[in-house]
Design a protein around this nucleic acid. Structure first.
Lengths: 339, 339
DNA sequence: GTTGGCATTTGCAGCGCTGCAAAGGACTAT
DNA sequence: ATAGTCCTTTGCAGCGCTGCAAATGCCAAC
């Protein structure tokens, strides 16, 4: 049978459709008697407002898009897990998009491609987009950018202090007496900003300790995944002078690196200490457990949603702000050993 | 500035709005000349069809909901990663919902709660819902159920042959000469159907090999996560007669179990062999790598989307079918050792 | 008794698009 | 010349809801 509409309810309750709408939307000036009549009719007919029609009428979709490069990367999955409830609490649905880090795809999204009317705003964690790409986007799209990007003032940006966090990680390795420290995950190109910040933190930590940096120990990888970590680590181990510690730019990289080390019969952390980045659940259960930098994901999610909704409902344009969530160092077995 | 509408384009091109609509939708009988005129106008105005309005007009939302218990469980993340492109290829957007396995939440969804008009159909991987819950759903909602559930004929169901797969896993352990084999992940209650099927496979394998089953080695867990695996394994190790192999009902459980074993200074697989289920990426890089049952996730995703779309567009009602995707045993270090 | 003010309810129009069916036009067959 | 056919384009109405502003009713105040 056809779904009940506002009009059906109105008829049954003996009021105008507009009044039913008022009741449904919690409009203040409705007498208790009317409200009750209407509510009874609603219950009787099993009426549910048609979100589509509502959205069309008021020009809002009630959905926000969250765009990540890879859904199956634990860090993003965990972040999404936090974003969805935060958005729902504010009455928004989340539309998830994965781009595989494809610049074109990401570009189409921020220019509001074919599906542009489907969401009121977007939280994006760009991988392929450069700073420049971001500035030619559809400016009418409320946007919050996650991850390390310098903010150009037209959108909001939320992340953690990558330089400081990386410095913390490397200082931790140094404090354990490690001298030859490698880094896995540097990226030279325009879109590798996050990587570059981490590399800067790597240098800072050395400088702070008066330790020289062996540039050849900074390994570049195309992505931050396990396979890249494993490969890069293999290259390091093939050298005559392998490192005694490695700062990995993600926990996945760390996981791959550890895999390679153990495969070769070496020990973590006795032979080589490893620290990662992101604090994914995996690292708390792997063997050894992985020391890491833990960004406050809940805070990031919360901030991102709040900020986006503010942009959606508030008057445009608002100057973009840069918000930093907290992070902390979590030492585990991969640096401390089994205690 | 206001977005261009169909009418704007029509005016500029000097045709009726309906004709523009025809062009946009690729209606066959439009002369090349007209089509070109319209297309030029579209380009000039930067017109993009308003999906919301379109959906309202034709009564379709163009979105399908995919409901999983936990987004950050690698298995579901990997499955989603496969479902999204499959759906998009057919012109559908995916709306992701996580329920935390909450029965109420899942129940509201399949009864088409408040957001009911937002999607045309649903793919759900239920955790809290029992067979009975599923049958009182909104029957007008095209539904595809994932995971192990017996199909009641009103919806489609897609999974793998859990009993056979589990039997394969346990037979593998037996073929390696293991005698005291434990199982972690059994669930007695109505919603633990998947677990019960796996337990049945566990029994079958023993029977096939003429090996007795020690029922006390079948450990129940509330969920299939790492923490549960770790706890259950600890209980097994605390016994006077610990097992020499464990069949874990998910790779996460296996990961947790391995964690515990290694923490206690025992070796995998020398002391205890472990096999998991799901083939998540994690297990290919952990140490040791985890032997597992690999369900064909791409096939599951493909089948689920195809079947759902068929239900959405086809004439209702169609009898529910039971589709099985392939699975295979992937032996790795956690049973074979380092080769 | 009348007026003003407020609480409550209503009608209208329209969000931007498509389904439907029919009108118009060109062409062929009779 | 006329009817029949097919291709192309069009108009109408309406999907179900809300913004807006006006209408209605009620009460206190004059």
């Amino acid at each position: 049978m056809r779904d009940a509409t506002l009009r059906d309810v109105a008829e049954l309750a003996g009021v105008s459709p507009r009044t039913v709408s008022n009741v449904v939307n919690g409009y203040a000036h409705v007498t208790a008697a009317t409200r009750e009549k209407v509510e009874r009719a609603i219950a009787e007919l099993g009426y549910r407002p048609n979100v589509l029609a509502r959205n069309l009428a008021n020009g809002r979709s009630g959905q926000i898009a969250v765009v990540v490069p890879y859904l199956d990367t634990p860090y993003f999955a965990e972040l999404l897990q936090a974003i969805i409830p935060a958005a729902r609490k504010s009455g928004y649905n989340v539309l998830i998009d994965q781009t595989d880090g494809d610049r074109q795809h990401e570009g189409e999204l921020i220019r509001r491609g074919s599906r542009g009317f489907l969401f009121d705003g977007m939280i994006i964690s760009p991988l392929g987009l450069s700073q420049q790409d971001l500035s030619v986007r559809d400016l009418s799209l409320p946007l919050v950018v996650l991850g390390e990007r310098v903010c150009d003032g037209t959108f909001d940006h939320i992340g953690i202090d990558d330089v400081a966090a990386s410095q913390d990680a490397v200082s931790h390795l140094i404090s354990l007496g490690r001298k030859r420290i490698a880094a896995i995950g540097d990226q030279p190109y325009a879109t590798g900003e996050a990587a570059q910040l981490r590399t800067r933190g790597f240098h800072n930590a050395h400088a702070a300790a008066g330790l020289p940096v062996d540039e050849s120990l900074i390994i570049r990888t195309p992505r931050f995944n396990r396979a890249d970590g494993a490969t890069a680590m293999a290259a390091l181990l093939d050298r005559d002078d392998p490192p005694d510690a490695v700062f990995c730019y993600s926990d996945l990289v760390a996981s791959g690196a550890i895999h390679t080390i153990l495969e070769r019969g070496l020990r973590v952390p006795e032979d080589i200490a490893i620290i990662g980045y992101d604090d994914i659940e995996d690292g708390r259960y792997s063997h050894p457990t992985i020391s890491t930098i833990s960004p406050d994901k809940t805070a990031i999610a919360q901030l991102a949603v709040e900020r986006l909704i503010m942009r959606i409902s508030g008057p445009q344009p608002v100057a973009g702000v840069e918000l930093l969530a907290k992070h902390r160092l979590i030492p585990r077995q991969s640096t401390l050993g089994r205690s």
